[in-house]
Amino acid sequence: MEFLITTVVAYLVYLLLTIGSGTVALWSTAELIIGAVLAVVVGAVLRNRFIGKDLRMLNPKRWFIFLVYLFPFVWAMARANIDVAYRVITGRINPAIVKIDPKLKNDMSLTILANSITLTPGTLSVDVRPETNELYVHWINVDPEVLKDMPRDYHPICGSFPDWARRIAG
């Protein structure tokens, strides 16, 4: 099963890269054959590396949620850039490294969350604690209210992104 998924994904990437090369649909015959052979080789070599044992991302519902998630993500990214531009121009920063517990269970959702908060307003993921799935986040403009209690509330820091990550891959 892992072999099959890896081969199909490798073949699809190869087809995307060689689009427009011939006349069989959009590809030439040689490219189709070479792509298939290379995909089988890649699938045989990387079958234990690419997805591991977790097959939950095969569910098309999760892909649909991911596509819906792109809209608030792009909006947050635009706000993040205007925020950084403001801080570059004025030089007003008040940084800290805070620990948050997003209460996520698996690695995929943690990866999505870490990449999302790197690109969204005022936060940058610095380190992760694999045993407890806690993230250390560099926060560029600290709210002193949040710093008072020790298990920190993640909503002022990274909004609803942990909920999205849980819905996509949780």
Binding site: M77, A78, A80, N81, V84, A85, R87, V88, G91, I93, P95, I97, T118, L119, G122, L124, V126, H138, I140
Partner: peptide, 18 residues
């Protein structure tokens, strides 16, 4: 403009990606 590595990473990553 920024004083240390982390804040520079903020500017570098977000702005150049966007």
């Amino acid at each position: 403009r920024f004083p240390d590595v982390y804040t520079r990473l903020h500017a570098a990553t977000k702005c150049t990606t966007f």
